[in-house]
Design a protein around this nucleic acid. Structure first.
Lengths: 226, 226
DNA sequence: CAGTTTTTTAGACTATTGACGAAATGCGGT
DNA sequence: ACCGCATTTCGTCAATAGTCTAAAAAACTG
């Protein structure tokens, strides 16, 4: 949902003619100016002024327009939103980029993790993705493994719902890209095959016993910004 | 490039604290307020006022900030931009969503196309993707076939650089999703196997002899908005 | 620690936005 | 042609953005 909001807001903002883009998305959501204005508690001529370019919207107003379109569609059953749901990303619980690269050892420390793989790993991490393995497996035919890389492959992947560690590694090996590191969230027992697979990929394995919510919180707060 | 700009602008706009997001991205690009301000030809205290939330940016200003960050990075070799390049999308020439669903027959008419597959096709099309098959093949190991679906699978895919029509269909069959239609741009000769493959997928094959630029233009102008 | 750079803060002024209401225009249906 | 609904246009005013300069505070480096 946030991604769609950002997409719309970004497109409006970057455009040479924000008014045209506002109008385009309003029509996409099949909402009249009167309806949008009513939802926003303004006069409909306000919407027209922006769409025709008489006024340039500030960010608070773009935010309000976008959120209103989303809310109106939800009230109508969410059909348009459904159409704009990207396929294959159901199992991604959280994904983000760090403001600066962070040493892997620091990330692991922050999430109270411990290395399963032996050796000294001096990688720099630029982002993270937290994945629910069960959901990913259930949508096996459609899960978009490439989407877990978001904006960079130099990231650490956290898998929840893993027992022995194999399936994420096998899936990762089926894509053309390689993450910087893989971590399991509260795994049962990591077997030797997983270690071997990871070694062949040059990917360090880590484990953490943090709760998922706490993990995500730490990734967002502890690693993203000073 | 546009996608990254929209991503940054969208995140700034949708945020409860745009100033914090502006600061985050400025730091990500490793640019000081002084440098950014100088590039934008304003006083550095202007940047501070926005980052600290004393002023709320209008869309023209967000646009200017984002474009300045990108330009500054380009001047420094583009390393940060490179880091944020999504892998696997090198062969996508153009991708877009229609404001409303359009009957396939109308789309085909607009691009002066003709059906190769027999029968009456009454599909509704929600978007398009124009793909350079040569580039996609060259980055064979990393081309992200799922990315061609953008925000919806209900789209028509146009393949440029196709001789007999097989490779796109084989590639499509290797992903878990199915497009609404497939069109070739100036193909040599479509062989029977391609027809058969398409038939098995329930995907109509179309051909068009438009130049790629003209095709993209028509898709953007003729189909996107009335 | 000192010096330099970066960021923040505050006051001030001009231009523009945010928003209204009323009138005009456009469009589709009967 | 008329009606109802949607959109556009325009004038107006209060509030806020866009921007400056100068000083203070914070951060960084050797």
């Amino acid at each position: 949902m946030t991604e769609l909001k950002e997409k719309i807001a970004g497109e409006i903002t970057i455009s040479e003619n924000p008014g045209d883009v506002i109008k385009k998305w309003r029509k996409m959501f099949q909402v009249s100016q009167v309806e949008l204005a009513s939802h926003m508690d303004v006069a409909s001529s306000v919407i027209s002024d922006y769409e025709k370019g008489r006024r340039k919207p500030g960010t608070p107003l773009v935010k309000k327009i976008v959120e209103s379109l989303i809310e109106i569609d939800n009230e109508k059953g969410g059909e348009v939103i459904e159409r704009f749901s990207k396929p294959g990303q159901e199992g991604i619980l959280s994904i983000g980029e760090f403001a600066k690269s962070i040493p892997l050892t620091t990330v692991v420390e922050n999430v109270e993790g411990e290395f399963i793989s032996e050796g000294k790993w001096e990688k720099e991490i630029y982002g993270y993705t937290v994945i629910d393995s069960i959901k990913a497996i259930l949508s096996m035919k459609s899960f978009d493994y490439l989407s877990i890389y978001g904006w960079s492959t130099e990231r650490i992947l956290f898998f929840k719902g893993v027992e022995h560690g194999r399936s994420p590694l096998i899936a990762i090996r089926s894509t053309p890209l390689t993450p910087a590191a893989v971590s399991y969230i509260k795994p049962k027992k990591i077997d030797e095959l997983s270690l071997k697979l990871a070694e062949e990929e040059g990917v360090p394995l880590i484990r953490t016993d943090l709760e998922v919510d706490e993990l995500i919180k730490r990734l967002k707060n502890g690693c993203e910004l000073p």
